[in-house]
Amino acid sequence: MSAPPDRTALSACIITLNEADRIAACLDSLAFCDEIVVVDSGSTDGTREMAAAKGARVLERAFDGYRAQKDFAVNAAHHDWVLCLDADERVTAALRASIEHARDAGFAGAAGYRFARLTGYFGAWLRHGNAYPDRVMRLFDRRLGGWRGAREIHEHASVDGPVATLAGDLEHDAYRSLADQLARLERYARLMAGHMHAQGRRAHIANIVFNPFWRFLRGYVLRAGFRDGWRGLVYAYVEANYVRQKFIKLWLLDRGQRI
C-alpha cells in the first residue's frame, strides 16, 4: 500500500513468536498504516501465515534480543515514520484518530510521539497504579532515533528531538494467564540481572528487601493501584516479586553462582 503524494507515509513494525491467537487483532488495528512489517523468529503456530494473509510483509530472523529484533524491523520498513507494536497490543479508535491527525499534519513539530498503554488483566483494564498510564514512545521518525542502547530487555526507543503526547490508549493484552505472567517475569528478571551484572551493577541486601517493598508501595498505594480491586493487588504483588527476583539473581551472579 502506498500513501497519497500529499501525506506522510507510515510503516507499522511488529515482532512475533507464536502469536496466532493475538496477531489478527493487532494487525486489524493497524489497517490505517501504509505498510505493515512483521519480523518473526520461528513461529510454529501459523503466525507467519496469518500475518501474510492480512497483508503484512513477513520477514524471518533468528531472535537475538528484543531491542535488536525491533531495530531490524524498523530498518526493514519502507518508510521513515514507523509505528512499533508488540503482537499483544492494539491501537484503539481514539489513538488511531490522534495518529491520523498528526500524520495529516506531516508529523510536524515532533520527532516522536508517546501515548498511554492500557493493560488488560484477568478480564478487566488496569487504570491505576504502575500499570497506567504507562506512556510509551512508539511512533517516531527513524532518521532521528530508534531502538538504541545495549540493553535487550525492557528496551525503549528514543529520538533526537521533541516528543509529543497523543490522546488515546494502546491496548495491551499482556498475559494469557498467571502462569504466563510469572514465567515471563522470571525470564525478564534473569535477563535484567545478567545485563546489570555485565554493566558492573552490584546487588545489596537493601535492594532485595526494600526495592520490592517500594515498588509495591508506589504502585498499590501512592498511585492508587488499590482502585483496581483484587486485580490491582495481584498485579502490584507480582510486580514487586519481579523486582525481588531480579536483585536476588544479581546477588547470586555477584557471587559467581548460576541463575
Rank of each mutant, 00 (worst) to 15 (best):
A12I: 06
R90W: 01
F107K: 00
G225M: 09
Y188D: 04
I36V: 15
I36P: 00
A76R: 03
R117Y: 06
A179I: 10
A68N: 10
R255T: 11
G106M: 08
Y132F: 14
L185N: 09
V221N: 07
G55M: 14
T8Y: 01
R187Y: 05
E152R: 08
A94D: 15
C26T: 15
R231F: 04
R143T: 15
D21F: 01
V163Q: 02
D6F: 07
A111I: 01
V159D: 10
S98A: 15
I248K: 12
W147D: 05
E186W: 02
E239P: 00
I36Y: 01
A131D: 09
K54N: 11
N211H: 12
A97W: 03
E186P: 01
V91T: 08
F216I: 06
W251G: 06
I99H: 03
G149D: 07
Q69Y: 04
R215Q: 12
V243T: 14
A51Q: 06
A193E: 08
G120Y: 10
Y242N: 03
F210P: 00
G146Q: 08
V37Q: 00
Q199S: 12
A62S: 13
L178K: 09
G112E: 02
G200H: 05
G229V: 08
D40W: 07
R201M: 14
A68K: 10
G55R: 12
D28Q: 14
E49F: 10
N75W: 05
S41G: 15
C13S: 05
A203E: 02
D169I: 02
G161F: 10
T47L: 00
A198R: 13
A3G: 05
R22Y: 03
V209I: 13
D64Q: 07
G55E: 12
H204S: 14
F213G: 02
G106I: 06
G46S: 11
D134E: 05
A174F: 01
A9I: 04
E60D: 15
L83Q: 01
G219F: 04
F140H: 07
A124V: 06
D254A: 10
R227D: 01
R142Y: 13
G106S: 09
I153A: 08
Y220H: 12
A51V: 11
I14T: 04
A189T: 08
Y132H: 07
D169N: 14
R7Y: 02
G168H: 12
D88G: 01
Y132R: 03
R187F: 06
F216L: 15
G219I: 08
V209C: 01
N75F: 01
D34F: 07
C13P: 00
V58G: 09
L17R: 14
L253W: 11
V159R: 09
G168T: 12
R61Q: 14
K70I: 14
M1G: 09
V91S: 09
R61T: 05
S41L: 13
R215H: 14
R7N: 02
E60V: 01
Q257C: 15
D71S: 13
Q245E: 11
F72P: 02
R258A: 15
L178R: 13
R90C: 15
F210D: 08
M192Q: 11
G129M: 11
G65D: 04
A102I: 02
D160H: 14
L253S: 08
G106R: 11
H204Q: 13
H156D: 11
W125K: 03
A87L: 12
G200C: 06
